[in-house]
Amino acid sequence: MKIRIKFRKWGCMKFIGHLDMLRYFQKAMRRADVDICYSEGFSPHQIMSFAAPLGVGITSDGEYFDIEVHSTKTTREMLSDINAAMVDGVEVTGYVALPDNAKTAMSIVTAADYVLSYKDGYESPFTLEEWKAEILELFTSKDSFPIIKKTKKSEKEVDLKPLVYDFKVIEQNHKPAFYMNVSTGSVDNIKPELLLASIYEKLNINYQEEAIAIHRLDVYAADEKTGKQISLLEMGTVLE
């Protein structure tokens, strides 16, 4: 049976990279006695795949991985078992069964949304209203938003406009913050800080990476019928 698990990650756990989170959950599955399926061969490994790897330094309310199990208890019981095997800073918030023909989380991700905010001790260069005006002028009102995307080997121009599905200024802890929903996954993967850093660049202000806290809210796939974004968790059913 295919199972999708949702978890959140906060505090110092943001420094644990993607591959180490994978190892962490492999061990956690054993501690929680999850009846997980193993591959064949001399060094069998758990059937487990993560949706959209989260960068080091980012916290999240919406992380996903899929597993296959031989048997399972109810969603409520499984959440309780797995959470009993967690460390501080990781909590499993969803456990749903997927249809047998479900594609892996990794292959269907299309978008993710984030909040970028100013950390304690750092101030925004503009007020909330000033930011709203700037974003409207620089981004929302424009038909395109070309930026130079640098990779290890080359530099190329990319238009961010069609890859950013939502971008607005909000208030958090009495400071301006940014909500964004961006293209994610194997085709066009947009890192949230790329958008904000590009805005800073257009404004000719220095973007300080360490000033900005990045928090992922959720990860989405496109609904097969409507094409609308749906949260990865909604694609499964709660076990009762």
């Binding site: 505090g11 110092c12 756990m13 420094f15 330094g57 501080d88 950390k119 360490e210």
Partner: peptide, 23 residues
């Protein structure tokens, strides 16, 4: 929440920050 001895800026700069966070 526990306050880390090293700030985010340092932890993001060094190799394998997980060496220093405990937990």
């Amino acid at each position: 929440m526990r306050k880390l001895a090293l700030n985010d800026e340092i932890l993001m700069k060094v190799e394998k920050p997980a060496r220093y966070i405990g937990n």
